[in-house]
Amino acid sequence: CMQQPIHQGNRLAYGKVLQIQEGDSKFRVEQMLGSPMLDSTLHPNRVTYYEEFEDEESGDMVKRGVEIVYDEALRVKSIREFGFEDKQ
């Protein structure tokens, strides 16, 4: 009930997330965002950078992240962001 919320998952700076383009290599993505904290054992070529923390002002939990799908050559095929509506 009174769990102290923690800042879990990758610390995602939205500026960096924006710089990821289709065609980027997995190496370049991991240089920008680090390696994803959330494992993706069952679908290694589809990774999710996930982040959850308590927003200081509003006090409610922000759940956001970016899902990246790589092709066989480990190049970014598609990018899907979620939870970045009120972009900081």
Partner: peptide
């Protein structure tokens, strides 16, 4: 509610 940690542990089992 540490869902990232929980998900990783369950994936280790799988």
């Amino acid at each position: 509610e540490r869902y990232v940690a929980a998900a990783n542990r369950f994936q280790t089992v799988i």
